[in-house]
């Protein structure tokens, strides 16, 4: 049918185009090897670190991630001087259905700080059930947000990335964007226990990437997901609907917060400290939103 519509020369042209697309190589990431070698990780004989981080996987996907980071989202970062050496708990705002915020902050920590860090993202408990994503995330240093995992990482002086809003944050509708939801308190207890500084990270742009207009709870329940977003493009455009909008992304690392005290304190006392972090993060977000301008084009 199609072959009748198209002339043979058209076929050839399409073939050449597809071949070109197939062979297209993204430009290499400048200084990638140097950055990888500067990471403070010890690898076993199979090339993995203690938590399943796999530099070879990073090498493979780095060009694509770099392109997405620099060209697609045009990420701008400020406050890099606030990233501590050694253990740290980065606390970010969460939104935008898929954990793109974790990926982008992780990339910022790897690409922009010196020495580079692996942002160990603590992901939602349903992430291991996602095909393809689960493996890739694990190879790039992410882990399920279990307190045990977080404790183990901090005790080994790693940079851990948490989103205390959890699924409450990432499942937000477009109309609720940049409204911080209720924070879990576990992260403050972990910071107290390991004496790790808390770095508030405001990420702007990620909460508009997948503008969810409705959360189809019944379907979410059926497939065992915490939420099922309906956006203007998903699920109506199928896989195409998974492509995020090309928003302008800015990241602001706030000044580290050091808490003192006992991690077995009452929930009220911990809640107070959590609110302090939330307050600082909210301020950073407001500043970031003011400076950004248009969601797609920036200023």
């Amino acid at each position: 049918m199609i072959s009748r519509l198209l002339k043979e020369t058209d076929w050839e042209r399409i073939k050449v185009l597809l071949e070109k697309l197939d062979q297209y190589q993204l430009p290499p990431v400048p200084g990638l090897e140097e950055r990888i070698s500067k990471l403070s990780v010890s690898l076993n004989s199979a090339g993995f670190d203690r938590w399943g981080f796999h530099p070879d996987t990073l090498r493979k996907v780095a060009p694509l991630l770099y392109w997405v980071y620099t060209k697609y989202f045009r990420v701008e970062v400020s406050g890099l001087e606030n990233c501590p050496h050694g253990r740290a708990l980065y606390v970010g705002n969460h939104g935008g259905q898929l954990p793109m915020d974790a990926m982008i902050i992780g990339l910022a920590l790897f690409l922009e700080t010196d020495p580079p860090r692996i942002g160990r993202a603590m992901v939602e408990r349903f992430v291991p059930t996602l095909p393809f994503v689960s493996g890739l995330f694990s190879r790039l240093g992410a882990m399920v947000g279990d307190p045990e995992n977080c404790l183990d990482l901090l005790n080994h002086d790693q940079s851990v990335l948490v989103f205390p809003e959890g699924a409450r944050g990432s499942g937000k509708l477009y109309t609720e964007r940049y409204e911080l939801q209720r924070f879990g308190t576990g992260f403050v207890r972990l910071a107290l226990e390991t004496k790790a500084p808390i770095v508030p990270v405001a990420i702007i742009g990620t909460e508009e990437m997948y503008p969810s207009i409705y959360n189809l709870k019944s379907l979410a329940k059926l497939i065992g997901a915490p939420y099922f977003p309906i956006t203007p493009f998903f699920p109506f455009l199928g896989a195409l609907g998974l492509v995020p909008l090309p928003t302008k992304v800015t990241i602001r690392f706030g000044a580290p917060i050091h808490f003192e005290g006992d991690h077995h304190e009452s929930e009220d006392a911990i809640r107070e400290k959590t609110e302090v972090v939330k307050g600082v993060l909210r301020k950073e977000m407001e500043e970031g939103l003011r400076q950004r301008g248009n969601a797609i084009f920036g200023k």
Binding site: N44, A46, F48, H54
Partner: peptide, 23 residues
């Protein structure tokens, strides 16, 4: 034993043929 590794890497190291099966 020594360290962790992904299942696919284990298959690769033992030079076996991976058969991907949909769940």
């Amino acid at each position: 034993g020594e360290g962790v590794l992904s299942y696919s890497k284990a298959i690769e190291l033992s030079r076996a043929l991976a058969i991907p099966v949909p769940p």
